[in-house]
Computed example of a mutant assay.
Amino acid sequence: MNIKQIRNATIVVEYAGKKFLIDPMLAEKGTYPPFPGTIRQDQDNPSVSLPTSVDEVIRGIDAVIVTHLHLDHFDEAAQKLLPKDIKMFVQNEEEATEVRNVGFKNVEVLQQDTVFEGIQLIKTKGEHGRGEELLKLMGEVCGVVFKHSSEKILYVAGDTVWYEGVQEELDTHKPDIIVVNGGDNQFIEYGSLIMGKEDIYEVHKAAPNAKIISVHMEAVNHWTLSREELKNFSKEKGFLNSILIPDDGELYSI
């Protein structure tokens, strides 16, 4: 498989001969205002440019997976630029309706047994932060596991913190590759919305033989964990060889 970091949570996964675009945020740098209640209120989003043209990002894509409909995972630019007949996978019927309402015609809700072109796609659980009030505010999220006889097992965790649900997914699917959203993005009042360095360390301890790829870093105003800090922490904790921390535009063949 090939996994290419585009920007933020946007990645392109080439798996068993098919090309998936996950969580597309395709706007130009500075298109949207900063997220309210967060740090860096002087910084518009996205805070960095795409590493390549939008045409190159979406060229040859067979399907799009949107783990949830927050702006930094499926923005207005993606809604306008993606072909309206492209295969779209979403997490529930409510979001399927929203995606159809902006013009997409081929929308499917991910299940535990979804199959696309011979590839098994398994919807996984997640929690977009900690505490009942924050979880209610942030809403439902998901991840996805990819399985095919010709490939290693890939788990894209999505916008989740470390909690027992992630442990359960690791125990159930035993992935070889784990993509985590690892920028420790935060609301000032509520704390972390996605994984920070300690969460990622827990993922490593739970799946010590897996390779972790940390994305969703340094691209929207409310990140708090830098690539450099995560690299230093991973070295300190002894799992630097088990983690990849891609720059935007970086491609891994695994």
Rank of each mutant, 00 (worst) to 15 (best):
N2K: 12
Q5F: 14
V12R: 01
V12C: 05
E14C: 01
G17E: 06
K18H: 11
K19G: 09
L21N: 02
I22G: 03
M25A: 07
A27F: 04
T31F: 09
T31V: 06
P33C: 00
P34I: 09
P34K: 09
F35L: 10
T38I: 01
I39P: 04
R40H: 15
D44V: 10
D44K: 15
D44W: 15
P46T: 04
P46M: 05
S47Q: 12
L50T: 09
P51G: 10
P51C: 10
T52P: 01
T52W: 01
T52D: 00
D55K: 09
E56W: 08
R59K: 14
I61V: 15
A63E: 01
V66G: 05
T67N: 14
L69S: 08
H70T: 01
L71F: 14
H73A: 09
E76M: 05
L81V: 14
L82T: 11
L82Q: 11
L82A: 10
K84Y: 12
M88G: 02
Q91V: 05
E94Y: 11
A96L: 11
G103S: 12
E108C: 00
V109E: 05
Q112E: 13
E117Y: 14
G118R: 13
L121T: 01
K123L: 10
K123P: 12
T124S: 05
T124F: 01
G126D: 00
R130T: 14
L134V: 02
L135K: 04
K136A: 06
M138E: 08
M138Y: 02
V145E: 04
V145R: 03
V145F: 03
K147F: 04
K147T: 12
I153F: 05
V156D: 10
V161G: 07
W162R: 07
Y163P: 07
G165Y: 05
G165I: 07
E168A: 15
E168G: 11
E169M: 15
E169C: 14
L170H: 05
T172W: 15
H173L: 04
I177K: 14
V180K: 07
V180H: 11
G182E: 01
D184K: 08
N185M: 07
E189I: 04
I194A: 12
D199Y: 12
D199S: 08
I200Q: 06
V203D: 03
H204P: 02
A206C: 12
A207I: 07
A207L: 05
I213E: 03
E218W: 13
N221M: 03
T224S: 11
L225Y: 09
L225P: 01
S226A: 06
R227M: 08
E228R: 08
E229W: 06
N232H: 09
N232R: 11
F233T: 04
E236K: 06
G238E: 00
G238A: 00
N241W: 05
S242N: 14
L244T: 05
I245L: 04
Y252G: 03
